[in-house]
Structures are given as structure tokens and as C-alpha cells.
Design a protein around this nucleic acid. Structure first.
Length: 870
RNA sequence: GCGGGUGUGCCCGAGCGGUCAAAGGGGACAGGUUUAGGCCCUGUUAGCGUAGGCUUACCCAGGUUCGAAUCCUGGCACCCGCACCA
């Protein structure tokens, strides 16, 4: 049967027996992959992602967990809308079509999802609850509307969140972002800034770099607000170093600062500067030059009461802090550079041996009542004084901004609000949800929802007068911020999810996805979890216990992309090599979190490996009695169980596969009727079980020829420490007793022995010795022993054994040395040597009595030969 | 600039104080089996030697140790995140 037929057969059986449909129980385990955007076809990154999750899910099921392993689609988004514009498709049809295509591909790969829990964010049965949650957050004060300067993507014609602007460009379109002021919806994520930050320390199952990225993104700075007065008006600054207050020799405000406008009317230098700054794009603005002009304003220092100049400069950002800083050039690099550029005074207030600017902490100087204090003490003292005078206070500043969720697009979740002339903005009542996307829209310029009268025109839920519906839709990140809750109760029609079900399944035990979501998605999802917890919807604090960010799949050293023409199609690969080989290779090619190069040679290598496994199962000839070989392969098998289990638990799946390959090779070496059927059968069964998470179809097929039950629901094997006893130790013991046996032979024979010295250096074969021992237990007649060996296929003494046996030291005299006595003629020894040589595929050297040696000597074989096997 | 990470043989990739010339896979070469083989099996694949063996090797330079790919110090290279964040 070919691989695709086998795959189909077992996929059908698994589905029919509902092997993957599980409810929470004693040992719930939630395995989750970041759900995809249904763009049409799968790429290799998907295959890797889902193969990882599927292997984990299958493993955990076999370990006796109830596993929640669902799949869904993050189905709102711009590509559907673009397709609508270009090809006149309905975005919903286009999306649904893609979903069914991709679903087929998932099934082709044999992923063990519980499809009854399918979640699709663009379907009303899902987004109804997105809207419901939005309103709950609104009622809780976590959603608000305000006029804001926004990042406008001129290509996608929509607003972008700060998080979606990368180096001044739109994250999707790559277009340079413009500034616009519009009324927008925000989610107050900053209300949770502290908790989101503090809880990161508890996320020990997350990669360090993701934790660091999140911390940096939230960016908490502890410091103080300090007010300077300027002609009766106030300039408030934020600083992390209130201790350096006496060193503040001037202020700098951002070009957008409200105070600058009035100055510009009177001061042409300032006006010119502002107009130049305004023309610059945000990219140009970020160039690190230290331009700026004096506004002519003078601020009153709140403590020294000195008058200090106020400058305006681009390097101060309106978006961060208060849009104004106090400059302490002696102790800040940027201020220092700026002061030098514009010849502003520099006053040292922290003593140090180092050159200025000195940015460290230390003992205060030239700071009046602070002199002699440490930076830490000085900070407290300064803030205390400022608070007393009402000109300053403690303040914690975040880099994190509130989450702008309005999008002026069609293909997203409608924001469930209505504007009424009398009542203002009114949330749509729960009974009227969902607010469904209309079909009578036209795509083109601007927001398509604006073109649908049936959608816009409505009545006010409060006063029933005619009202206008909100036409903004939500950022798709909102949809994906709670989908992992919905999986627990995907078909619930009366609530987004059941509290009990969420509490029993969550947190997600293993979350798997790309590093590109390290900040946005994960932060939003964490926020939603905390916010919905505080709404009383569940009691989970953090959604994802363990996080794995898988590495990229490269081709020719580069990311696969259509423009580079180096895209490898998963479908082609599955067609050619089979789902099992593709899955297994995608896990074997490298450590899960590292990137690797896709190689079809590698896949075919895995295919060969899987083929060898099936050859093992076809083994029909066995030895009738147990022997030391049985102990040996049992010990290797048990050790493999232990190692694979360890590697599965630590997600080092590439190593787990490697372990399985080693076991396969070992068992293959014993394929020639060397072991008892019972032993072999156990070992092969175990092998199939270990393989099941990676190559489920082939493993299931092979298992079905040996058992009536399903492999997928079999119980993961447990390593027996007693049976794992070190092969190496056994080998030594065996060797010792072998030597005794041999000595006995010599004693018995009483004949001047010819000497056959068998050196057993690095590549000596454990099983060869075992056979030799067995042979000696039957007879002490070397002739018989030799002839019995002649009849055996010696090739099974594979090199896999040598790797498990400790190597002997370099000193050859320490090598084990067997002395065989023999009455036989040189001819027979030669025969033995040749047999070993050709059948064992080892080099055999025969050493002459005088110590000389030459390969050809075995032809002549005079006197007393010795044989080296290595 | 700040923060995180990586560096092993032809390639990928394990190892993380002695059992290491370094697992496993791929590729290449040779042999066996075969009507044939792109199936399968075996061997070789740093250099020199018929071989025992010797020399050189885990980014570079030092150090700790009887002993280092593995531990420490200092470099170098590459990758990623944030970035005039006050």
C-alpha cells in the first residue's frame, strides 16, 4: 500500500473512533498552536509548527492525559479584502474557500485535532462574542474613544497600532506611515501594565528572549514628574534621575509641545525649525542629529530658583513622557552632546573620576542640601521636597501605550456601537448581537462599510430614534486575543465560554508558534486573560504556561518566499515522500527553536528510515532459545524508552527521533534470527509506540499487523531500570569469563597451542563475544566453534554496539586478549580469518610468531599466527 | 547605544570535564546483494602510515585542571529585538 492510502485509511479510522475528542479529566493537557491566517495554501513553516504540536499532543495522549488539541482560523484580515477589490470576490466566500482548502491540507498531514472545536474568527457565532467581550470591557472602563494622532497606512488605508509600525513603516504594506488625527477606539491595556510586567518573572516556561522583549516593550521607568514654571505656565518633565535635578541647566521640549505654538508666532527661528521638522517623515526624524533652537523662554528651576533656557528639539518626542525633558548634560549622553553642540552650560552634580558625561550613580555634589548623599537617598529627598512644594511627584512611566483597535476596513469584527444625536455613543445591547457585516458594500476607496446604508442606518437602543452605526471594525489582534478560551467550549451559544471548562483546561500547557508574535499577540492575549479574569469570567492569570517559538524553515540559506522563487510546497513533498516522512523530517532537521535548511535529501533519508522500520516488522525468523542477545536488545530498548521520554518532555524532538533511529539500527542488526521472537516482538512494539507521535500513519499500519488495538490510544511504554543495566558492564564481565573459558580450553587440550590472539580494540563487537561465549558453552573444540561461526551470518555484529561499549585505552597491552589453543592447521585459521574478514566486514590482520605482520601473511600462514580484529 | 542569542568535522546537527577523531542524519566514494536498481546491507569520508600508531582538530587568544569541544577570562564574527524612551 502506498503512503497516501495508508495515511487516508488511518485518518478515517481515528476520526471514526473519535480518538482525538477528549473532555477534561484528571490529567488535562492543553496543547495549542497559534492558529493560521487562511491565506490559501500551507507553507513549510506551518508544517513545522503543526508537526511539533501534533507530536506533543499524541505523546501526551499516550501518557494518559486528556488532551485538548484544537485548530481554528484567524480569518479576518486584509488579504481577503484585497482579493475582494482585485477579483470582485466576497471576502467571506474567499475566506471560507481558503479555510476548506487548508483544512484538507491539515487532514492530509494527519494532525490529530479535535475538529468539533473548530473556531473561525470571521463567523458570526464567534465574533458575536468578540463584540460581547468588547462591550464588557467598555462597561468596565477599559475601552474608550478619543481623538488621536494616529499612524495612517496610505497603502492599506487604515490606522495602525504603534505595535504595527516597524521603523516608520506599516508592518504589512511596508509603506511609510503618515500622521493623521481621527476619533478612535482604544483598549486601555496600560491599566494592566504593571501586572503584565511583573508577571513576566513567573513565566518560567517561556524563552528568555521573549520575556525580555515583552519587558522592553512595556518599558517601565521609575522616576518623577517635575514642574518648571515659565511665565506662569507650567512645563512638566519626566525624569528617571530626579537626583540630578541641580544639574539641570536647561529644558528641551518637543516640536509638538503645546507651549511651542505660541512661541512660534513671535519667534521666526522657532517657526522655521518647526516647519522643517513637520516636513520630515518619522524615519528622517529618527536620524540622531542634535538639532534644536532656543525658544527664548526661560523656566524657573523649582529648587535653585535659577532661570534656565527652554529649547525646542526633535530628539525630544511628544509621544513619550510629557514631551519635555530637563537636560542634565553632565550626566546624560544625549544632553551632553546637545549642550556641546549649542554651547549650553554643563554642571556636574555627581562626583566621579570619570570624564563627563558620567551616567552612573554616586555621591552628590554642587547640589545644595543634597551634597554628600548617595543617588538613591538624593532621589527620595528631592521628591519629598517637590511634593511638599507641589511641583513634583513620584511617577512611573511606561513605553507601552493604549491599544488602538479601530480599523477603517470592512473585513473585521464590527465594533458594536451606535451613535445617537440625543444619547451619544451607545453600546449595542446583548440581545442585538452579533452586529453582522453587511453584504451590500462596495470596495474601493475608503472604508467599504460607509457605503452600506442598510448597515449604517439604525435606531438608538436607548431612545429608538434614528441613529448611525459605528463603521470601524476591530484590529484582528482582538479576535486572536481570546480564541484559546473559545476552544474549550467552541459551540456554546449562550456565552463566549463556560467558566468551569476554561478553569479546567487553562492555562495552555504548551503554546507553539512563531517568534514574530513574541510581542503583539502574546501581550494582547495576556491582557485579555487578565481583563476577562477581572470580569469574573474565569480565574486564570496567565494564558500560556509554556511557550515554544519555533525556528524558521529556510531554503538555500534564506527565508522561503515567492519573490526569491525558493518556496518548497508541502503538498508536493507530502505527495512524493508521504506525510509521515515530511512530518518526521520537519522535526528531525533541527532543534525546534532553531532555524534549519529544508532538504529533500533529508526527507528521503527519513523515508528510508521509516522503510527500515517496516522491514523490522516483516522479520519472521527467530532464534528458538533466549541468549545474551536478548538481554542486549532489551537493554537498548529500555534505554531508548528512557531517552525518548526525556527528550519528549523537554521538547527536544529532534533528539527523540535520533534515539529512535539508533534503536532501529540496533534491532536491524538482529534481524537475522539472532534473538527470540518474544524479545524481538516487545522491542519492535516499543519502537512503533515511540515512533507514533512522529510518523503516526506508518506506525499505526505496522501496529495493526501485530495487534487488534489502536496504536494511537496505546499506553506509552515505561522504561524498566532493571532491564537497562549497563551493557558496558555486562560486556566486561562477559569478557572476563570468556577468558577463563579459554584458559580452560588450553588446560584441557594440553597441547602446545598455536596462538590466536584476538585484539578487541575500539570497534570490537559485543555480540560477537556473546556468540563466542555461547559457542564455548557448547564445546571447547575450537574447530567446531570456528565451523559454527562459518554458518552464521556475522554481519549482524554491527557497529552500533561498539558505540555503547567503552573504548579501551590507547595502550594496547591493556586490550583484552584471548588465547585460543588449536590443534588445527594454519589452513583453518586462515579460513576463520577470511570468514571474519568478508562476513564481518572487519579488517583481519594475522600476526606471525616473530611479531612481524603483513596482510599477505594470512595466505602463507606459517608457524603460529595471530589474528587482530578491529 | 541598550537587551537577548549563536559559533562543532563537506553540510545539518548531538555532545556540555576523562569512555571524543567527537552520536544520528544528509551528501560523496568504495564494496556486497541483485536481471537491474533510484530498494536493502557493509565499509570509508582531518592528515601521514600496510598496520600498531602518530600529528592536527570543536571561532580566536589566554587560564583552571593530572585531563577541556565541555569550566573561567578576554577578544572576534554572525543573528534577533528595542532604539534620540529622558
Amino acid at each position: 500500500m502506498d503512503h497516501s492510502a495508508i495515511a487516508k485509511k488511518w485518518q478515517a479510522v481515528w476520526a471514526e473512533k473519535k480518538v482525538f475528542v477528549q473532555e477534561p479529566g484528571e490529567k488535562p493537557y492543553y496543547c495549542l498552536e497559534m492558529f493560521p491566517y487562511p491565506s490559501g495554501t500551507m507553507h513549510m513553516g506551518h508544517v513545522r509548527n503543526y508537526s511539533l504540536g501534533d507530536a506533543v499532543a499524541r505523546y501526551k495522549r499516550m501518557k494518559g492525559h486528556q488532551v485538548l488539541y484544537p485548530m481554528g482560523f484567524d480569518a479576518f484580515g486584509l488579504p481577503a479584502e484585497n482579493a475582494a477589490v482585485q477579483n470582485n470576490f466576497d471576502p467571506a466566500d474567499w475566506t471560507e474557500e481558503n479555510i476548506s482548502t487548508i483544512t484538507e491540507q491539515f487532514k492530509l498531514l494527519g494532525m490529530s485535532y479535535d475538529w468539533s472545536r473548530l473556531v473561525v474568527t470571521c463567523r458570526p457565532d464567534y465574533y458575536r462574542w468578540t463584540q460581547w467581550l468588547f462591550i464588557q470591557l467598555y462597561n468596565k472602563g477599559l475601552v474608550y474613544r478619543k481623538k488621536a494622532v494616529v499612524n495612517w497606512d496610505p497603502v492599506d488605508k487604515t490606522v495602525l497600532a504603534n505595535e504595527q509600525v516597524i521603523d516608520g513603516r506599516g508592518w504589512r504594506s511596508g509603506a511609510e506611515v503618515e500622521k493623521k488625527e481621527i476619533e478612535q477606539w482604544f483598549i486601555k491595556i496600560t491599566a494592566y501594565a504593571d501586572e503584565l510586567l511583573d508577571a513576566i518573572d513567573g513565566l518560567t516556561g517561556w524563552p528568555e528572549r521573549v520575556r525580555t522583549m515583552q519587558k522592553n516593550w512595556i518599558g517601565r521607568s521609575v522616576g518623577a514628574h517635575i514642574s518648571f514654571s515659565v511665565n506662569g505656565e507650567e512645563i512638566k518633565v519626566f525624569t528617571t534621575r530626579p537626583d540630578t535635578l541641580f544639574g539641570a541647566t536647561y529644558l528641551v521640549i518637543a516640536p509638538e509641545h503645546p507651549l511651542v505654538r505660541s512661541v512660534a508666532q513671535k519667534n521666526s527661528a522657532v517657526a522655521d525649525y518647526l516647519s522643517i521638522a513637520a516636513k520630515k517623515s518619522s524615519i528622517e526624524r529618527s536620524a540622531a542629529d542634535k538639532s534644536g533652537v532656543d525658544t527664548g523662554l526661560r523656566a524657573l528651576h523649582p529648587v535653585t530658583k535659577e532661570k534656565i533656557p527652554v529649547w525646542v528639539a526633535e530628539y525630544v518626542l511628544m509621544e513619550y513622557g510629557t514631551g519635555a525633558i530637563m537636560a542634565v548634560p553632565a550626566h546624560d549622553e544625549r544632553d551632553f552632546a546637545f549642550a556641546q553642540e549649542h554651547s549650553l552650560p554643563i554642571k556636574q552634580v555627581i562626583s566621579s573620576d570619570q570624564d563627563l558625561p558620567f551616567t552612573g550613580e554616586g555621591e552628590l555634589m554642587q547640589s545644595g542640601f543634597l551634597d554628600g548623599l548617595s543617588s538613591v537617598r538624593a532621589r527620595e529627598a528631592v521628591i519629598e521636597l517637590l511634593e511638599k512644594d507641589g511641583v513634583g511627584s513620584h511617577h512611573v512611566q511606561y513605553r507601552l501605550r493604549d491599544w488602538l483597535v479601530s480599523r477603517q476596513r470592512y473585513w473585521g469584527c464590527p465594533i458594536p456601537f451606535v451613535y445617537c444625536d440625543s444619547c451619544g455613543g451607545v453600546p449595542v445591547p446583548e440581545s442585538d448581537l452579533p452586529v453582522v457585516l453587511p453584504k451590500d458594500v462596495s470596495f474601493g476607496e475608503g472604508n467599504p462599510l460607509e457605503t452600506s446604508n442598510s448597515f449604517i442606518q439604525t435606531t438608538c437602543p436607548k431612545c429608538s430614534k434614528p441613529a448611525r452605526r459605528e463603521t470601524d471594525t476591530m484590529d484582528t489582534f482582538v479576535d486572536s486575543s481570546w480564541y484559546f478560551f473559545r476552544y474549550t467550549d467552541a459551540n456554546n451559544e449562550s456565552a463566549p465560554f463556560d467558566k468551569g471548562l476554561v478553569n479546567s483546561w487553562l492555562p495552555v500547557n504548551q503554546y507553539i508558534g512563531g517568534i514574530e508574535h513574541a510581542i503583539l499577540h502574546l501581550l494582547y492575549a495576556r491582557f485579555f486573560t487578565k481583563a476577562t479574569r477581572d470580569l469574573g469570567l474565569h480565574t486564570i492569570d496567565e494564558p500560556f504556561k509554556n511557550l515554544l517559538c519555533q525556528g524558521m524553515v529556510l531554503k538555500d540559506g534564506e527565508k522561503m518566499s515567492k519573490s526569491k522563487g525558493n518556496v518548497v510546497s508541502p503538498l508536493d513533498m507530502i505527495h512524493e515522500f508521504g506525510a509521515d516522512a515530511v512530518r518526521t523530517f520537519s522535526l528531525f532537521a533541527g532543534a525546534p527553536e532553531k532555524e534549519y535548511e529544508w532538504s529533500s535529501e533529508g526527507v528521503s533519508g527519513v523515508q528510508r528510515f521509516l522503510h527500515r522500520v517496516s522491514l523490522l516488522c516483516a522479520q519472521r525468523e527467530f532464534r528458538s532459545a533466549f541468549s545474551s542477545h536478548d538481554e542486549y536488545i532489551l537493554s537498548v530498548t529500555h534505554r531508548t524508552i528512557e531517552q525518548v521520554t526525556e527528550h519528549m518532555d523537554s521538547l527536544r524532538l529532534n533528539l527523540a527521533i535520533s534515539d529512535i533511529m539508533v534503536l532501529t539500527n540496533t534491532l536491524s542488526s538482529y534481524g537475522q534470527s539472532a534473538v527470540h521472537q518474544e524479545t524481538f516482538s516487545f522491542c519492535v512494539d516499543t519502537l512503533l509506540q515511540l515512533l507514533a507521535p512522529f510518523a503516526p500513519h506508518i506506525a499505526e499500519e505496522l501496529w495493526s499487523t501485530r495487534h487488534d488495538s489502536l496504536l494511537a490510544s496505546s499506553v506509552w511504554p515505561i522504561a524498566d531500570p532493571d532491564k537497562m543495566s549497563l551493557v558496558a558492564e555486562q560486556a566486561f564481565e562477559l569478557h572476563a569469563s570468556l577468558e577463563e573459558d579459554i584458559q580452560k580450553v588450553i588446560g584441557l587440550s594440553g597441547v602446545t597451542p598455536q596462538q590466536i590472539t584476538i585484539f578487541l580494540p575500539s570497534s570490537w563487537k559485543y555480540s560477537f563475544l556473546a556468540d563466542l561465549k555461547d559457542a564455548f558453552s557448547q564445546t571447547h573444540n575450537v574447530g567446531e566453534i570456528i565451523s559454527s561461526f562459518m554458518q552464521t551470518d556475522l554481519r549482524r555484529y554491527g557497529k552500533e554496539i561498539s558505540s555503547l561499549v567503552p573504548r579501551y585505552a590507547k595502550d594496547r597491552s591493556k586490550l583484552p586478549r584471548a588465547i585460543l589453543s588449536s590443534e588445527h592447521e594454519a589452513k583453518e585459521v586462515t579460513l576463520f580469518a577470511r570468514s571474519l574478514s568478508s562476513r564481518l566486514n572487519v579488517r583481519v590482520v594475522v600476526e606471525l610468531e616473530d611479531g612481524s605482520s603483513h596482510p599477505k601473511a594470512k595466505q602463507a600462514m606459517p608457524g603460529k599466527p595471530a589474528i587482530f580484529i578491529e
